[in-house]
């Protein structure tokens, strides 16, 4: 937790830069009728830090937030009135999923999987998305465990022969 605080303080100097980067995205999302005000962005960053803190994660950049905005703004299920709140929830869903899939899935793949489920299986319901992703993470961990025990059984490669 101490480390998370150091990272955040390092990022303070970047805050303004981040704000601008996120506000610039409005140019792209405007075509879907979605816009964030500077206050929305400020609140979103505070909420994101809160989520990172409670899920015990250290974040290096703003990349995930940017991709979440870019990918989800295209959804017909998101309207301007619930835009900022939905983004805040999506941050929480994402970082929770990172933990639950034990950091084994890349950010991009996870975000696109979330979007796919959000559109197709859940028809824009965040509650449903959470429970579907819970099942997804469980299944992923089961597979992971299976593969790990298989590789244990097969024995590991010995690339360095000590006896030589």
């Amino acid at each position: 937790m101490y480390l998370a605080r150091i990272f955040n303080s390092l990022n303070i100097s970047m805050q303004e830069h981040y704000m601008n980067e996120l506000l610039e995205l409005n140019e792209k999302t405007k075509e879907y009728g979605l816009v964030l005000t500077p206050q929305d962005v400020e609140l979103m960053m505070a909420a994101r830090n809160e989520v990172l803190h409670s899920y015990g994660r250290v974040e290096l950049s703003i990349e995930v937030t940017k991709v979440l905005i870019e990918v989800f703004s295209a959804s017909s299920f998101i309207q301007q009135e619930n835009y900022a709140d939905t983004l805040n929830e999506l941050h929480e869903v994402f970082y929770d999923l990172k933990n639950e899939t034990e950091d084994r899935i890349s950010d991009m793949k996870l975000i696109h999987r979330m979007k796919e489920m959000f559109e197709e299986d859940c028809e824009g319901s965040l509650g449903l998305l959470k429970s579907k992703l819970e099942e997804y993470a469980e299944e992923f961990r089961r597979e992971l465990q299976k593969n790990e025990s298989l590789s244990l059984l097969e024995g590991e490669e010995d690339d360095w022969d000590l006896k030589n």
Binding site: L3, A4, V58, Y95, K98, S106, D107, M108
Partner: peptide
């Protein structure tokens, strides 16, 4: 490069 975040334990 596949993830921009890690758990606090990993970072520590």
């Amino acid at each position: 490069g596949e993830s921009t975040s890690v758990t606090t334990e990993t970072a520590e």
